[in-house]
């Protein structure tokens, strides 16, 4: 398994882990009122920040453990990275359109913030899975 593929798996684990912690924390606070009344902002920011730090630390550990092979990214790695990131960004666009519609409809901030966060998580997952598929099945080259 290439270093870039391992990094994609790390992103999947970190994204799913952070989002699971966030959802579990928010749901544990539900009282008698509506879900949109639950305090979410602090947890949301902490889990996003934690996920970024965890991904950076995991990449550093893998780079140290992987030796000189871990440092090198060649033309194939860059090509796969660029295309898979673009695939993932399609979800961000969908999430932003959803957030725009929700803002126009004057929904609670809770729903808009959560739609944006979910879009980020799904974008990260989609680009990571696209990357893994590209490494295993042959990239994005078209002829």
């Amino acid at each position: 398994m290439s270093f870039a593929e391992k990094r994609a798996w790390v992103m999947i684990v970190v994204s799913v882990g952070a989002y699971t912690i966030y959802v579990a924390t928010v749901l544990s606070r539900i009282g008698d009122g509506p879900l949109a009344d639950v305090a979410y902002a602090g947890t949301l920011l902490w889990t996003i920040g934690g996920a970024i730090v965890a991904a950076i630390v995991a990449n550093i550990v893998m780079a140290v453990a992987g030796g000189h092979c871990a440092e090198r990214a060649d033309e194939r790695d860059r090509e796969i990275d660029q295309v898979s990131e673009r695939i993932g960004q399609s979800i961000v666009v969908i999430g932003m359109i959803a957030a725009l519609v929700m803002a126009i409809a004057e929904l609670r901030h809770f729903w808009i913030a959560n739609a944006v966060y979910l879009a980020f998580v799904l974008s990260s997952l989609l680009s990571s899975f696209a990357k893994i598929a590209a490494y295993r099945k042959g990239g994005f080259q078209t002829w």
């Binding site: 270093f3 060649d74 033309e75 194939r76 042959g138």
Partner: peptide, 10 residues
């Protein structure tokens, strides 16, 4: 060549 082993394999 200056690429990864995975690229040579692929």
């Amino acid at each position: 060549v200056g690429v990864t082993r995975q690229t040579i394999i692929a």
